[in-house]
Design a protein around this nucleic acid. Sequence first.
DNA 1: ATCTATATGTTATATCGTAACATTACAAGA
DNA 2: TCTTGTAATGTTACGATATAACATATAGAT
Lengths: 169, 169
Amino acid sequence: MPHDHCPSCAAPDLAFVAHDHGPCASDALARAIAILAAKGLRLTPVRRRTLEILLEGHRALGAYDVLSRLASEGFGAQPPVAYRALDFLEEHGLAHRIRRLNSFTACMHIGENHTAAFLICRACNAISEAPATPSRAALDSAASAQGFAIESATIEALGLCPACQRAAA
Amino acid sequence: MPHDHCPSCAAPDLAFVAHDHGPCASDALARAIAILAAKGLRLTPVRRRTLEILLEGHRALGAYDVLSRLASEGFGAQPPVAYRALDFLEEHGLAHRIRRLNSFTACMHIGENHTAAFLICRACNAISEAPATPSRAALDSAASAQGFAIESATIEALGLCPACQRAAA
DNA sequence: ATCTATATGTTATATCGTAACATTACAAGA
DNA sequence: TCTTGTAATGTTACGATATAACATATAGAT
Protein backbone atom coordinates (compact mmCIF):
# COMPACT_ATOMS: atom_id res chain seq x y z
CA MET A 1 0.00 0.00 0.00
CA PRO A 2 1.87 3.09 -1.24
CA HIS A 3 1.40 6.29 0.77
CA ASP A 4 0.97 9.02 -1.78
CA HIS A 5 0.91 11.59 0.96
CA CYS A 6 4.50 10.91 1.96
CA PRO A 7 7.68 11.90 0.15
CA SER A 8 9.43 8.58 0.31
CA CYS A 9 6.66 6.82 -1.59
CA ALA A 10 6.05 9.41 -4.22
CA ALA A 11 9.70 9.91 -5.08
CA PRO A 12 11.96 7.28 -6.58
CA ASP A 13 14.56 5.89 -4.22
CA LEU A 14 17.13 8.50 -3.31
CA ALA A 15 20.02 6.21 -2.51
CA PHE A 16 22.00 7.19 -5.59
CA VAL A 17 21.10 10.86 -5.45
CA ALA A 18 22.63 13.47 -3.15
CA HIS A 19 19.91 14.42 -0.73
CA ASP A 20 19.15 15.54 2.77
CA HIS A 21 19.04 12.21 4.51
CA GLY A 22 17.62 13.47 7.79
CA PRO A 23 14.01 13.20 6.69
CA CYS A 24 14.55 9.67 5.29
CA ALA A 25 15.70 8.54 8.69
CA SER A 26 13.26 10.39 10.86
CA ASP A 27 10.34 9.46 8.69
CA ALA A 28 11.31 5.80 8.77
CA LEU A 29 11.74 5.88 12.53
CA ALA A 30 8.35 7.50 12.99
CA ARG A 31 6.75 4.87 10.85
CA ALA A 32 8.52 2.11 12.70
CA ILE A 33 7.20 3.42 15.99
CA ALA A 34 3.68 3.60 14.63
CA ILE A 35 3.78 0.12 13.18
CA LEU A 36 5.13 -1.54 16.25
CA ALA A 37 2.63 0.28 18.44
CA ALA A 38 -0.17 -0.95 16.23
CA LYS A 39 1.05 -4.50 16.57
CA GLY A 40 1.63 -4.21 20.31
CA LEU A 41 5.36 -4.81 19.92
CA ARG A 42 8.11 -3.01 21.77
CA LEU A 43 10.80 -0.84 20.23
CA THR A 44 13.25 -1.36 23.07
CA PRO A 45 16.47 0.65 23.39
CA VAL A 46 18.67 -1.92 21.60
CA ARG A 47 16.16 -2.34 18.82
CA ARG A 48 15.64 1.36 18.39
CA ARG A 49 19.35 2.07 18.37
CA THR A 50 19.96 -0.72 15.89
CA LEU A 51 17.36 0.73 13.57
CA GLU A 52 18.85 4.21 13.95
CA ILE A 53 22.29 2.87 13.09
CA LEU A 54 20.96 1.21 9.95
CA LEU A 55 19.12 4.41 9.09
CA GLU A 56 22.30 6.45 9.08
CA GLY A 57 22.71 5.85 5.39
CA HIS A 58 21.61 3.99 2.32
CA ARG A 59 24.02 1.19 2.89
CA ALA A 60 24.23 -2.25 4.39
CA LEU A 61 26.00 -3.08 7.62
CA GLY A 62 27.19 -6.46 8.80
CA ALA A 63 25.87 -7.77 12.09
CA TYR A 64 29.31 -7.35 13.61
CA ASP A 65 29.51 -3.74 12.47
CA VAL A 66 26.23 -3.05 14.20
CA LEU A 67 27.40 -5.02 17.21
CA SER A 68 30.53 -2.99 17.71
CA ARG A 69 28.49 0.21 17.54
CA LEU A 70 26.06 -1.13 20.10
CA ALA A 71 28.81 -2.40 22.35
CA SER A 72 30.55 0.97 22.29
CA GLU A 73 27.33 2.54 23.48
CA GLY A 74 26.97 0.29 26.46
CA PHE A 75 24.81 -2.48 25.07
CA GLY A 76 25.84 -6.11 25.12
CA ALA A 77 28.95 -7.06 23.22
CA GLN A 78 28.12 -10.57 22.08
CA PRO A 79 26.81 -11.55 18.61
CA PRO A 80 23.30 -12.56 19.69
CA VAL A 81 22.66 -8.99 20.85
CA ALA A 82 23.01 -7.72 17.30
CA TYR A 83 21.45 -10.71 15.57
CA ARG A 84 18.38 -10.62 17.76
CA ALA A 85 17.76 -6.96 17.17
CA LEU A 86 18.37 -7.32 13.44
CA ASP A 87 16.17 -10.39 13.17
CA PHE A 88 13.40 -8.59 15.03
CA LEU A 89 13.60 -5.61 12.70
CA GLU A 90 13.59 -7.85 9.68
CA GLU A 91 10.71 -9.96 10.92
CA HIS A 92 8.56 -6.89 11.31
CA GLY A 93 9.47 -5.23 8.06
CA LEU A 94 11.75 -2.52 9.41
CA ALA A 95 14.95 -3.85 7.90
CA HIS A 96 16.05 -6.20 5.17
CA ARG A 97 18.78 -8.75 4.93
CA ILE A 98 21.06 -8.35 1.93
CA ARG A 99 22.04 -11.92 1.12
CA ARG A 100 24.67 -10.94 -1.34
CA LEU A 101 26.60 -9.06 1.33
CA ASN A 102 25.66 -11.03 4.44
CA SER A 103 24.44 -7.78 5.87
CA PHE A 104 21.44 -5.69 6.75
CA THR A 105 19.91 -2.45 5.61
CA ALA A 106 17.04 -0.33 6.90
CA CYS A 107 13.79 -0.66 5.04
CA MET A 108 13.04 2.55 3.17
CA HIS A 109 9.40 1.65 2.61
CA ILE A 110 8.25 0.74 6.06
CA GLY A 111 4.56 0.01 6.21
CA GLU A 112 4.15 -0.59 2.55
CA ASN A 113 3.38 -4.19 1.84
CA HIS A 114 6.12 -4.96 -0.60
CA THR A 115 8.66 -7.33 -2.01
CA ALA A 116 11.89 -5.40 -2.20
CA ALA A 117 14.53 -5.46 -4.91
CA PHE A 118 17.96 -4.14 -4.03
CA LEU A 119 20.44 -2.41 -6.27
CA ILE A 120 23.86 -2.76 -4.70
CA CYS A 121 26.70 -0.59 -5.95
CA ARG A 122 29.88 -2.61 -5.78
CA ALA A 123 32.03 0.51 -5.84
CA CYS A 124 30.50 2.78 -3.20
CA ASN A 125 28.34 0.20 -1.42
CA ALA A 126 25.23 2.32 -1.63
CA ILE A 127 22.02 0.32 -1.64
CA SER A 128 18.82 1.36 -3.26
CA GLU A 129 15.50 -0.31 -2.60
CA ALA A 130 13.87 -0.43 -6.02
CA PRO A 131 10.26 -1.17 -6.90
CA ALA A 132 10.03 -4.93 -7.22
CA THR A 133 6.37 -5.46 -7.93
CA PRO A 134 6.73 -6.27 -11.64
CA SER A 135 9.74 -8.45 -11.06
CA ARG A 136 8.00 -10.26 -8.24
CA ALA A 137 4.91 -10.78 -10.37
CA ALA A 138 7.01 -12.39 -13.08
CA LEU A 139 8.64 -14.61 -10.47
CA ASP A 140 5.23 -15.60 -9.10
CA SER A 141 4.13 -16.58 -12.54
CA ALA A 142 7.26 -18.68 -13.18
CA ALA A 143 6.69 -20.35 -9.82
CA SER A 144 3.05 -21.17 -10.38
CA ALA A 145 3.92 -22.72 -13.73
CA GLN A 146 5.71 -25.33 -11.60
CA GLY A 147 3.10 -25.40 -8.85
CA PHE A 148 5.55 -23.81 -6.43
CA ALA A 149 4.18 -21.62 -3.62
CA ILE A 150 6.47 -18.71 -2.84
CA GLU A 151 6.70 -17.64 0.77
CA SER A 152 9.50 -15.13 0.44
CA ALA A 153 11.58 -13.79 -2.40
CA THR A 154 15.08 -12.41 -2.62
CA ILE A 155 15.78 -10.07 -5.53
CA GLU A 156 19.16 -8.39 -5.58
CA ALA A 157 21.31 -6.84 -8.27
CA LEU A 158 25.00 -6.05 -8.07
CA GLY A 159 26.46 -3.40 -10.33
CA LEU A 160 27.36 0.25 -10.51
CA CYS A 161 25.33 3.25 -9.43
CA PRO A 162 25.22 6.28 -11.76
CA ALA A 163 27.99 8.19 -9.97
CA CYS A 164 30.35 5.22 -9.93
CA GLN A 165 29.67 4.52 -13.61
CA ARG A 166 30.80 8.05 -14.39
CA ALA A 167 33.83 7.64 -12.14
CA ALA A 168 34.80 4.40 -13.89
CA ALA A 169 34.51 5.84 -17.39
CA MET B 1 20.17 -18.86 -26.39
CA PRO B 2 17.65 -21.67 -25.86
CA HIS B 3 18.40 -24.97 -27.58
CA ASP B 4 15.11 -26.18 -28.97
CA HIS B 5 16.74 -29.37 -30.08
CA CYS B 6 17.47 -30.50 -26.54
CA PRO B 7 15.06 -31.86 -23.97
CA SER B 8 16.18 -29.76 -21.04
CA CYS B 9 15.36 -26.55 -22.86
CA ALA B 10 12.03 -27.57 -24.29
CA ALA B 11 10.69 -29.04 -21.08
CA PRO B 12 9.98 -27.10 -17.90
CA ASP B 13 12.36 -27.76 -15.04
CA LEU B 14 11.96 -31.26 -13.64
CA ALA B 15 13.15 -30.62 -10.11
CA PHE B 16 9.71 -31.01 -8.57
CA VAL B 17 8.64 -33.89 -10.79
CA ALA B 18 9.65 -37.53 -10.41
CA HIS B 19 11.89 -38.27 -13.36
CA ASP B 20 14.83 -40.27 -14.57
CA HIS B 21 17.65 -38.03 -13.45
CA GLY B 22 20.41 -39.83 -15.33
CA PRO B 23 19.93 -37.89 -18.55
CA CYS B 24 19.81 -34.55 -16.68
CA ALA B 25 23.23 -35.26 -15.26
CA SER B 26 24.89 -36.79 -18.27
CA ASP B 27 23.53 -34.14 -20.58
CA ALA B 28 24.79 -31.39 -18.30
CA LEU B 29 28.20 -33.01 -18.03
CA ALA B 30 28.46 -33.37 -21.78
CA ARG B 31 27.58 -29.74 -22.23
CA ALA B 32 30.08 -28.70 -19.60
CA ILE B 33 32.83 -30.57 -21.41
CA ALA B 34 31.91 -28.96 -24.70
CA ILE B 35 31.77 -25.48 -23.27
CA LEU B 36 35.06 -25.68 -21.47
CA ALA B 37 36.75 -27.15 -24.52
CA ALA B 38 35.43 -24.28 -26.60
CA LYS B 39 36.89 -21.80 -24.14
CA GLY B 40 40.19 -23.64 -23.83
CA LEU B 41 39.60 -24.33 -20.13
CA ARG B 42 40.37 -27.55 -18.28
CA LEU B 43 37.86 -29.79 -16.58
CA THR B 44 40.38 -31.28 -14.19
CA PRO B 45 39.58 -34.27 -11.97
CA VAL B 46 38.56 -32.19 -8.91
CA ARG B 47 36.44 -29.90 -11.01
CA ARG B 48 34.79 -32.71 -12.86
CA ARG B 49 34.08 -34.66 -9.71
CA THR B 50 32.71 -31.54 -8.02
CA LEU B 51 30.33 -31.00 -10.91
CA GLU B 52 29.28 -34.64 -10.84
CA ILE B 53 28.55 -34.40 -7.13
CA LEU B 54 26.39 -31.33 -7.66
CA LEU B 55 24.67 -33.09 -10.54
CA GLU B 56 23.54 -35.97 -8.37
CA GLY B 57 20.29 -34.23 -7.67
CA HIS B 58 18.22 -31.10 -7.94
CA ARG B 59 19.43 -29.72 -4.68
CA ALA B 60 22.06 -27.46 -3.20
CA LEU B 61 25.14 -28.58 -1.31
CA GLY B 62 27.29 -26.54 1.02
CA ALA B 63 30.97 -26.18 0.20
CA TYR B 64 31.84 -28.34 3.20
CA ASP B 65 29.46 -31.07 2.05
CA VAL B 66 31.22 -31.14 -1.28
CA LEU B 67 34.57 -30.99 0.45
CA SER B 68 33.94 -34.04 2.59
CA ARG B 69 32.89 -35.98 -0.49
CA LEU B 70 36.02 -34.92 -2.33
CA ALA B 71 38.25 -35.65 0.64
CA SER B 72 36.79 -39.14 1.01
CA GLU B 73 37.72 -39.78 -2.60
CA GLY B 74 41.34 -38.84 -2.18
CA PHE B 75 41.28 -35.18 -3.12
CA GLY B 76 42.50 -32.46 -0.80
CA ALA B 77 40.71 -32.05 2.49
CA GLN B 78 40.99 -28.31 3.06
CA PRO B 79 38.27 -25.75 2.31
CA PRO B 80 40.04 -24.02 -0.58
CA VAL B 81 39.92 -27.26 -2.54
CA ALA B 82 36.13 -27.16 -2.60
CA TYR B 83 35.77 -23.40 -2.89
CA ARG B 84 38.14 -23.21 -5.82
CA ALA B 85 36.36 -25.90 -7.75
CA LEU B 86 32.95 -24.42 -6.95
CA ASP B 87 34.05 -20.90 -7.84
CA PHE B 88 35.46 -22.16 -11.12
CA LEU B 89 32.22 -23.91 -11.99
CA GLU B 90 30.20 -20.84 -11.10
CA GLU B 91 32.45 -18.49 -13.00
CA HIS B 92 31.98 -20.50 -16.16
CA GLY B 93 28.27 -21.02 -15.85
CA LEU B 94 28.30 -24.67 -14.80
CA ALA B 95 26.97 -24.10 -11.29
CA HIS B 96 25.14 -21.46 -9.34
CA ARG B 97 25.51 -20.14 -5.85
CA ILE B 98 22.31 -20.17 -3.82
CA ARG B 99 22.72 -17.15 -1.55
CA ARG B 100 19.79 -17.99 0.59
CA LEU B 101 21.37 -21.28 1.62
CA ASN B 102 25.07 -20.44 1.40
CA SER B 103 25.38 -23.33 -0.94
CA PHE B 104 25.81 -24.41 -4.55
CA THR B 105 23.77 -26.20 -7.16
CA ALA B 106 24.56 -27.48 -10.65
CA CYS B 107 23.33 -25.35 -13.49
CA MET B 108 20.55 -27.13 -15.34
CA HIS B 109 20.77 -24.86 -18.36
CA ILE B 110 24.43 -24.96 -19.18
CA GLY B 111 25.27 -23.10 -22.32
CA GLU B 112 22.11 -21.07 -22.40
CA ASN B 113 22.84 -17.47 -21.75
CA HIS B 114 20.55 -16.85 -18.86
CA THR B 115 19.77 -15.19 -15.59
CA ALA B 116 18.54 -17.91 -13.32
CA ALA B 117 15.73 -17.78 -10.78
CA PHE B 118 15.66 -20.44 -8.10
CA LEU B 119 12.68 -21.98 -6.40
CA ILE B 120 13.86 -23.47 -3.13
CA CYS B 121 11.59 -25.87 -1.27
CA ARG B 122 12.11 -25.32 2.45
CA ALA B 123 10.67 -28.75 3.25
CA CYS B 124 12.51 -31.13 0.92
CA ASN B 125 15.34 -28.82 -0.17
CA ALA B 126 14.73 -29.46 -3.84
CA ILE B 127 15.82 -26.61 -6.06
CA SER B 128 14.32 -25.76 -9.39
CA GLU B 129 15.91 -23.40 -11.85
CA ALA B 130 12.99 -21.44 -13.23
CA PRO B 131 12.86 -19.18 -16.27
CA ALA B 132 13.92 -15.76 -15.07
CA THR B 133 13.88 -13.76 -18.24
CA PRO B 134 10.68 -11.79 -17.52
CA SER B 135 11.64 -11.21 -13.92
CA ARG B 136 15.09 -10.11 -14.93
CA ALA B 137 13.68 -7.76 -17.56
CA ALA B 138 11.49 -6.12 -14.93
CA LEU B 139 14.50 -5.76 -12.67
CA ASP B 140 16.54 -4.23 -15.48
CA SER B 141 13.83 -1.71 -16.04
CA ALA B 142 13.60 -0.79 -12.35
CA ALA B 143 17.39 -0.41 -12.34
CA SER B 144 17.59 1.79 -15.38
CA ALA B 145 14.94 4.06 -13.91
CA GLN B 146 17.62 4.89 -11.34
CA GLY B 147 20.49 4.84 -13.80
CA PHE B 148 21.89 1.70 -12.19
CA ALA B 149 23.88 -0.74 -14.35
CA ILE B 150 23.28 -4.34 -13.32
CA GLU B 151 26.22 -6.69 -13.61
CA SER B 152 24.71 -9.71 -11.93
CA ALA B 153 21.36 -10.53 -10.44
CA THR B 154 20.23 -12.87 -7.71
CA ILE B 155 16.62 -14.03 -7.86
CA GLU B 156 15.58 -16.66 -5.36
CA ALA B 157 12.29 -17.75 -3.87
CA LEU B 158 11.77 -19.81 -0.75
CA GLY B 159 8.56 -21.76 -0.34
CA LEU B 160 6.98 -25.14 -0.86
CA CYS B 161 7.16 -27.39 -3.89
CA PRO B 162 3.96 -29.08 -5.06
CA ALA B 163 4.59 -32.36 -3.25
CA CYS B 164 5.41 -30.67 0.04
CA GLN B 165 2.33 -28.46 -0.23
CA ARG B 166 0.22 -31.60 -0.47
CA ALA B 167 2.09 -33.17 2.42
CA ALA B 168 1.52 -30.07 4.56
CA ALA B 169 -2.20 -29.86 3.82
C1' DA C 1 4.19 -7.31 45.74
C1' DT C 2 4.30 -11.18 42.93
C1' DC C 3 4.06 -13.57 38.89
C1' DT C 4 4.81 -14.45 34.00
C1' DA C 5 6.28 -13.55 29.58
C1' DT C 6 9.57 -11.08 27.06
C1' DA C 7 13.91 -9.25 26.41
C1' DT C 8 18.86 -8.95 27.35
C1' DG C 9 23.09 -10.69 28.44
C1' DT C 10 26.66 -14.33 28.67
C1' DT C 11 29.79 -18.41 27.18
C1' DA C 12 30.78 -21.49 23.96
C1' DT C 13 30.73 -23.39 19.51
C1' DA C 14 29.14 -24.20 14.79
C1' DT C 15 29.40 -22.86 10.06
C1' DC C 16 31.11 -20.42 6.11
C1' DG C 17 34.93 -18.36 3.60
C1' DT C 18 39.71 -16.62 2.33
C1' DA C 19 44.79 -15.11 2.61
C1' DA C 20 49.23 -16.71 1.93
C1' DC C 21 52.40 -19.74 0.53
C1' DA C 22 54.56 -24.55 -0.93
C1' DT C 23 54.26 -28.12 -4.33
C1' DT C 24 52.92 -30.44 -8.42
C1' DA C 25 51.34 -31.11 -13.16
C1' DC C 26 50.97 -29.30 -17.75
C1' DA C 27 51.61 -27.31 -22.25
C1' DA C 28 54.62 -24.79 -25.35
C1' DG C 29 58.94 -23.37 -27.15
C1' DA C 30 64.17 -24.17 -27.33
C1' DT D 1 63.54 -34.10 -24.90
C1' DC D 2 64.32 -30.75 -21.84
C1' DT D 3 63.45 -26.54 -19.96
C1' DT D 4 60.44 -23.16 -18.38
C1' DG D 5 56.53 -20.37 -17.34
C1' DT D 6 51.75 -20.85 -15.96
C1' DA D 7 47.93 -22.92 -14.04
C1' DA D 8 46.23 -26.04 -10.69
C1' DT D 9 46.35 -28.36 -6.28
C1' DG D 10 47.58 -28.81 -1.79
C1' DT D 11 48.60 -27.09 2.91
C1' DT D 12 48.31 -24.13 7.35
C1' DA D 13 46.34 -20.64 9.48
C1' DC D 14 42.91 -17.47 10.24
C1' DG D 15 38.88 -14.36 9.61
C1' DA D 16 33.93 -13.68 9.19
C1' DT D 17 29.27 -15.04 9.92
C1' DA D 18 25.81 -17.23 12.78
C1' DT D 19 23.43 -19.95 16.46
C1' DA D 20 22.62 -23.06 20.66
C1' DA D 21 22.05 -23.06 25.39
C1' DC D 22 21.47 -21.02 29.45
C1' DA D 23 21.51 -17.10 33.23
C1' DT D 24 19.67 -12.65 34.49
C1' DA D 25 16.85 -8.77 34.32
C1' DT D 26 12.79 -6.09 33.11
C1' DA D 27 7.97 -4.76 31.96
C1' DG D 28 3.29 -5.26 32.47
C1' DA D 29 -0.63 -7.82 34.50
C1' DT D 30 -2.96 -9.29 38.57
